[in-house]
C-alpha cells in the first residue's frame, strides 16, 4: 500500500514497505530484508522472513550500527508522518523499549512506523478528544481576553490554565504538570533542572500511558524530544504495553 524510502544525510537508504498492518524494512542498496513486523494490539511484533543461509553472519558491532541506522530512518519517517496534517490518521512509532535507549543491546528488531485511525486512538487514549477540546477552548479564551503580551507568554498562560482546569477536576485518570527525572523516571518537583516536564498524562490501566504535549503556533514536537519523553515515561511506568505520545 505504501513505500517510504528514507535517505540519510550520508546517502544510505532504508526502505519501509507497508501492506495492511505488516511493515517490511529493507536495505535500500541491496534490497535485503532487515526486519518484518506486524502491528498488533500488543505493539509491533516480529514476523518471520526468508534469510539466505549463505548470508554472512554479522558481528555485534555491525548489528548495532545497522540497528542505529534503522532507528534513525524510522524516526525520520515518523517525523514526516507526524507533520502531514492533512491526512486522516495519527502518526505512530512503535518499537521495543531497548530501541529507544542509546547504547543498549540490539535484540529484537520489531519496529513499525505509520498512521493509526482516530478510532484506534480513541480506543487506546479515550480522553484524547476531551484534551484536544480543552486546549482549543482555553487557547480561544486567552486569545479573546488579550493582554498576554508575547506569543511565548500566551503559550505559558494557556499551559497554566489547562493544567489548573485538569487539576480542579480531581480526576485520577488525568495528571497535569508533573516532572520526571530523565535518567530514572522518578517524580521530581515540577520544572526542576534535568527533568522531563510533562503537560498532561492519561494512564489507561493496565497497559497504556498516553502523554499529551501542548504546542502553540508553529512549534512542533521533535521526534528526538518525543523519544526522551517516552523514555522517562517508560521508567516511571515500567511494564506497560503502549506508550503513546500525542501532540496537541
Amino acid at each position: 500500500d505504501e513505500q517510504h524510502t528514507v535517505t540519510a544525510p550520508d546517502g544510505t537508504r532504508t526502505v519501509f514497505e507497508t501492506s495492511g498492518l505488516t511493515q517490511t524494512i529493507r536495505d535500500g542498496g541491496s534490497g535485503e530484508i532487515l526486519s518484518r513486523s506486524r502491528l498488533t494490539t500488543s505493539g509491533a511484533e516480529p514476523e518471520a522472513f526468508f534469510q539466505s543461509a549463505r548470508a554472512p553472519q554479522r558481528l555485534p558491532r555491525e548489528l548495532k550500527r545497522l540497528s542505529d541506522r534503522i532507528l534513525q530512518a524510522a524516526i525520520s519517517l515518523f517525523t514526516t508522518e507526524a507533520i502531514r496534517r492533512n491526512r486522516d490518521g495519527t502518526a505512530i512509532f512503535a518499537a521495543p523499549a531497548s530501541e529507544y535507549i542509546p547504547g543498549d543491546a540490539f535484540n529484537d528488531r520489531a519496529m513499525w512506523v505509520g498512521a493509526v485511525s482516530q478510532r484506534e486512538l480513541d480506543r487506546l487514549c479515550p480522553r484524547n478528544a476531551e484534551i484536544q477540546a480543552l486546549a482549543k477552548s482555553t487557547a480561544a479564551e486567552v486569545r479573546a481576553l488579550g493582554g498576554y503580551g508575547t506569543e511565548q507568554n500566551f503559550g505559558n498562560i494557556v499551559h497554566r490554565i489547562i493544567a489548573h482546569k485538569i487539576k480542579s477536576m480531581k480526576d485520577p485518570g488525568l495528571i497535569a504538570e508533573v516532572s520526571y527525572a530523565a535518567e530514572t523516571g522518578i517524580g521530581v518537583h515540577y520544572s526542576s533542572g534535568q527533568s522531563i516536564r510533562l503537560d498532561v498524562l492519561e494512564p489507561v490501566r493496565p497497559s497504556t500511558v498516553c502523554v499529551y504535549d501542548h504546542k502553540m503556533g508553529k512549534a512542533i514536537l521533535r521526534a528526538v524530544r518525543a523519544v526522551d519523553i517516552i523514555t522517562a515515561i517508560q521508567k516511571h511506568y515500567p511494564g506497560m504495553r503502549n506508550y503513546i505520545m500525542i501532540e496537541v
Binding site: 500500500d1 505504501e2 513505500q3 517510504h4 524510502t5 528514507v6 535517505t7 544525510p9 519517517l77 514526516t80
Partner: peptide, 20 residues
C-alpha cells in the same frame, strides 16, 4: 491511483513516499 511525495526532515534526511 498512485501518489508520490518527497519531504526533507529537520535532520537532513529525505523521505520519498509512494502510496498505491
Amino acid at each position: 491511483s498512485t501518489t508520490q511525495e518527497e519531504v526533507v526532515t529537520a535532520d537532513g534526511s529525505r523521505v520519498l513516499s509512494i502510496r498505491i
